[in-house]
Amino acid sequence: MSLDCIVLAGGQSKRMGRDKAFLPFKNKTFLRNILERIDGFCSRFLIVVNKDFSLYEEQVKDLKSKVVFIKDINPYDGPLNGIVSAYPYIKSEKVLITTCDTPVINTELLQKLSIQLNNYDAVIPEIDSKIQPLNTFYTKNAVEKAVEIYKQGKKSLMAWLDNLNYKTINKEYIRKYDKEILTYKSINTPESYKWLLEKEDKIK
Rank of each mutant, 00 (worst) to 15 (best):
K94D: 08
Y150I: 11
A142L: 13
S156V: 05
S129M: 12
Y173R: 01
E126Y: 06
Y56F: 15
A86Y: 13
K130P: 03
E126H: 01
V7H: 01
Y89L: 03
V48R: 02
D62R: 07
I131C: 09
C100S: 13
V49G: 00
F30L: 09
V143H: 03
N33L: 11
I149V: 15
I169K: 06
K112Y: 04
L157M: 09
I124P: 02
I97R: 02
I174C: 06
D39T: 11
L80F: 08
P190I: 08
L23V: 00
D52W: 12
D52M: 14
P24G: 10
R15T: 11
I6Y: 03
I73W: 03
Y173A: 02
K140S: 09
T189G: 10
Q111A: 05
E148A: 12
R175I: 08
E200W: 10
A21H: 10
L46T: 00
E108K: 12
L134E: 13
Y89I: 00
C100A: 14
N118P: 03
L157I: 13
S43C: 06
K194H: 11
I174W: 00
R15M: 10
T107R: 15
E58F: 06
D121K: 08
L46H: 04
D101V: 00
Y89W: 11
L63Y: 12
E198R: 11
I124K: 01
Y89D: 01
A9M: 04
L109M: 08
F137H: 10
D4M: 14
